[in-house]
Simulated scan of single mutants.
Amino acid sequence: MDLSAKLRDSGKRLTPQRRLILDAVGVLGHATPDEVLAEARKAQATLSISTVYRNLEVLEELGLVRHAHLSDRAPTYHSVGDHEHFHLVCRSCHRVISVGTETLVPLLAQLDADHGFVPDVGHLTVFGTCADCR
């Protein structure tokens, strides 16, 4: 299903602002709402931060973007179009490493077996020290 159809089926339209915001998230990879705003304003200078927040919420409800907390500041958004992943964040240099969920298969199986629990790993962020900073 294409983007316009997905939005239409949910009772929403693909507005120029939504397209700009989705494109900005795609270009930036991992971005805070302020970073999305700065990128989108390259195409539409009058875009407001409230429009960015509202549309990121809609795009997340539709499963087109996800957010993770990669710092103690604003959430960071990324496109769902690429692979499902979780994040490693270095506390020293703030580098973000995306890791495929296949790495977690043994842990996920153990959590399910022991607790009947299936985590949402797309929101998982592990903080530590990267190889370069160690």
Rank of each mutant, 00 (worst) to 15 (best):
M1C: 13
M1N: 14
D2Q: 08
L3M: 15
S4V: 13
L7R: 04
R8S: 10
R8L: 08
G11M: 00
R18L: 07
L22K: 04
A24C: 02
H30I: 14
T32Y: 00
P33V: 03
P33Y: 04
P33F: 02
E35D: 05
A40E: 02
A40W: 01
A43N: 09
A45W: 03
A45L: 05
A45N: 05
S50Q: 04
N55Y: 06
L56W: 05
E57G: 11
V58S: 05
E61N: 10
L62A: 10
L64S: 08
H67I: 03
A68G: 04
L70A: 06
D72S: 14
D72K: 09
R73L: 05
A74I: 06
S79N: 05
G81S: 15
D82A: 12
H83M: 13
L88D: 05
V89K: 02
V89L: 04
V89A: 02
R91W: 14
R91S: 14
S92T: 14
S98R: 00
T101E: 10
T103D: 15
V105N: 15
L107M: 10
Q110D: 15
Q110P: 15
Q110N: 14
L111F: 06
G116Q: 04
F117C: 02
D120P: 12
L124C: 04
T125A: 03
D132R: 09
